[in-house]
């Protein structure tokens, strides 16, 4: 295992101790529980999360300043939620001095770029109090999810209870108990193109990152990465917010996380390289080299 998992201080398998959170959690309820703890302890004044909108399964980023609001954001929606778009507004009309934000690896990259190069983010860099990253292989536009669920899985979006990508398949669970699985071969073409140059699977730049891969059902793998993340995580553990198991003692364990991370990075690195000779002596732009 090398750089594919990023820098981290510790890695565990964890599950929330809060039954109410677990009821609607995607896996171990890590994000909601950690934000809830941080909110109650005054470590953050609010968190930018994605909650329900006026269309079924279409997420809407919003600033949660209460536990009730936070609870509406539980679960994964597998389509785009521009959470970073609220990062300045959170400090303005919401008046937050200590912001929590959850996002995909690319959104964690956006947050760190925003702190190191705050071109249009006046007074934001010093106000990021807790950035939680979620593992991500790729994301989908809303219309892709609609097509996958309604055309391929032949279910109404309104009637879906949960979606999940795992064990090599895209799973759609209906409210009435029906389960449809689509092979990822079907979902691939609907992926957001911008994901194919992404070189980060486990949110290397977050304070704490988490995802289902590596841990048993109902549990999440957690990487604690920064000093700040370590500080908050250890306090939350001391407060009894989570049950944990050493990652070495769970199946499938860190090896699977590493394997998937390497698969993603290798595949996308290849895409980045192919872009350099996409046309006839004409390249597509490479953001990792230059903004030109």
């Amino acid at each position: 295992m090398g750089t594919e998992l990023g820098k981290y201080k510790l890695c565990v398998s964890a599950r929330s101790a809060d039954k109410e959170i677990l009821k609607k959690a995607q896996d171990g309820g890590i994000v909601t529980t950690l934000f809830k703890y941080a909110l109650e302890e005054g470590i953050i004044d609010g968190a930018i999360v994605s909650g329900p909108s006026d269309e079924p399964w279409r997420p809407r980023p919003f600033v949660a300043t209460t536990v009730e609001e936070l609870m509406t954001s539980r679960g994964t929606r597998y389509n785009l939620s521009p959470n970073v778009s609220f990062i300045k507004e959170a400090t303005r009309s919401y008046g937050l001095d200590k912001i929590g934000i959850v996002g995909t690896p690319c959104q964690m990259q956006a947050v760190r770029k925003g702190q190191l190069y705050p071109v249009g983010l006046r007074d934001v860099p010093d106000k990021i109090a807790l950035a939680i990253g979620i593992f991500c292989m790729e994301n989908f536009p809303y219309q892709s999810i609609k097509q996958l669920v309604e055309d391929h899985a032949a279910m109404k979006l309104e009637a879906v209870k949960k979606m999940e990508i795992g064990k090599g398949k895209f799973w759609v669970y209906g409210e009435r108990g029906q389960v449809v699985q689509l092979p990822l071969k079907v979902t691939h073409k609907y992926e957001q193109p911008g994901c194919h140059v992404c070189l980060d699977y486990v949110a290397n730049l977050a304070d704490v990152s988490t995802g289902s891969v590596g841990s048993p059902d109902g549990w999440s793998t957690v990487f604690v990465r920064t000093k700040n993340g370590d500080d908050i995580w250890s306090k939350a553990i001391a407060a009894g917010c989570f049950e944990t198991k050493p990652i070495e003692q769970v199946k499938p364990g860190l090896e699977l996380v590493s394997k998937l991370a390497n698969e993603k990075i290798t595949k996308n690195q290849k895409t980045v390289e192919e872009r350099a000779k996409f046309g006839v002596n004409k390249a597509l732009r490479n953001p990792y080299i230059s903004p030109k």
Partner: peptide, 21 residues
Amino acid sequence: MGCGSCAAACPVRAITHEYGK
């Protein structure tokens, strides 16, 4: 990839996100 940075950075709020873009 629809992160939202551009909308946050715009000083005149000229950028919104429609279905993530």
